[in-house]
Nucleic acid binder design. Sequence first.
DNA 1: AAAAAATTCAACCGCTTATTT
DNA 2: AAAATAAGCGGTTGAATTTTT
Length: 281
Amino acid sequence: MEGQFGWGREEGGWRKGPWTAQEDKLLVEYVRQHGEGRWNSVAKLTGLKRSGKSCRLRWVNYLRPDLKRGKITPQEESVILELHALWGNRWSTIARSLPGRTDNEIKNYWRTHFKKGKPSKNIERARARFLKQRREMQSQLLLQQQQGQDQHHQQQKKQAADHDDEAIVGEAPSPAISAAAAQQHEDDDLQLLQQDMDDLLFQFCPMAASCTSSSCGLLPSAASASEEGSSSGDHHQLDGGGGATWGWGSLWNLDDVVDDVDGGWDTGLFPLLQDQGLAFY
DNA sequence: AAAAAATTCAACCGCTTATTT
DNA sequence: AAAATAAGCGGTTGAATTTTT
């Protein structure tokens, strides 16, 4: 099962195409011994005929042990939708809120499930998934509250952000969404879906909802058009130890993202806003 | 049952940004 | 300070798989 020819042969000395188990083994062993990085020396040291770029990709997207395999959960899906509405196609940024998921994975997922031009069937499916998921979430919420995790933070924020009515949908068209025009129906569906999403998000994380909705005015639609890198403070290491489990904390679980901000950033919800140099408070 | 269409996803490419020499 | 090298990002591709007709 290794003889894919025409695809998977060498070109300019480098092998391309699907990785074989042996190749994976070599790469894994290399990383075990030398750590991540220095990808170009993989070939030199192991004899693997892969470019550094290819090695890095393979490791980051597939071999990394902290990757979470398996299907995207409904919870993750809702986060993806929500964050995409916030940031557009900044896949790696979105991925940072989904431990164990890669930007590639998220990109693929979003494209196949929510990209415009898909038959509305998909929207319907998404809606169905969402509704189901909402039920689950609600019961989880209940459970959490019963377990008496004191989240006085949330209470406070909730008050602060009491109007959330015009959610993302209204004014924060992600590039994709704003491009619509042609497909009103699906748009409507999507918007409904996103409204639901926003409601939902608000339940769990009022801060986020309030930010998306109004005041902060940090919705990136313009910025996300990619023009103007803007970034720079965007240093992101591959987070080392990863959250193996995701649970509900994902949005709150920032330790892999915040590392140059002095400790307590109790608003905590969207670390990435910082990356973009957006400050609030 | 089988052919066609649709979906998925790993891996590629080119470009940008960061780091090293 | 500049050039070279490495890392990172997002878009795209296409073989394999799944679903639909």
